[in-house]
Every structure is written in structure tokens, then in C-alpha cells.
Amino acid sequence: MFSVFIFFNGHHEPGGGFIGGLMTSSAVVLLLLAYDLETVKRVLPFDFKIVTAAGLLTAVATGMGSFLFGEPFLSQTYDYFTFPVLGELELATALLFDIGVYLVVIGITLTIIQTIGEDR
């Protein structure tokens, strides 16, 4: 339960997508240490290779989003989102890029760990 707690906390750690992703992955590593490979796979039924791909796509897509406004690749803009719970929030597209990084980092670390773990 504690590792699941860390898993959810990892998302909100300061320091950007990279450190956040690593924190989350280490939480899953704790899960892996506590249980065996199959159990963790049942609890977290993601294919982490797909997670990596989705993250990459997010990052590239945010870069390409700036095409729509006639700006050079990777230009940042501010977007306003209205969430049902939180109200109106001002979010920079850099955050979306960070989400991409975050997903890639999680995907890659967990793919590495699971692949090595399985080959025993």
C-alpha cells in the first residue's frame, strides 16, 4: 500500500518529467520487490512499451501543435482549460511536453526492469 502511495505521489514531485518519471518507476520497482512479476503485471496492466510510445507521441505532438499557430516547431503557448473539478486553469504547453517525458521515462525504466527480470 505504501508503494502505491509513492506511485501516486511521484506524479506531483517537483523537478520536471524526468525525476517524476523515475520516482514513479522506483515505486513500481518497490512493488516488484514486494511481490512477484505476475502480480505486479496484474495490478498494473499496462504494456510499458506502449506507454513509451504514447509519451513520445505526446511530446512530438505538443511541438507540432505550434504549427497550427504558424510558429516555429516547439514554440510554447498558454492554453486555458476548464476542468469540472478545478475550474479554469492556465496551463503552458511545456507541461504537456513534460507529461510526454514523464511517460517515456516510466515506460523505458519499467521495460528495462521487466525484461531483465523475466529472463531469469
Binding site: 510510445a53 513520445l56 507521441l57 512530438v60 507540432m64 504549427f67 504558424g70 510558429e71
Partner: peptide, 19 residues
């Protein structure tokens, strides 16, 4: 303006989609 980024973006996007 973004013409010259496409040589990098096309294979990159394709690679990601192929994943």
C-alpha cells in the same frame, strides 16, 4: 517556416507510430 523540420519529423513520427 517549418518546412525544414519535416525531414526529422517524418521519420520520427513514423517511428513512434510503429511502436
Amino acid at each position: 517556416t517549418n518546412l525544414i523540420i519535416w525531414p526529422v519529423l517524418i521519420p520520427l513520427l513514423t517511428g513512434i507510430l510503429l511502436l
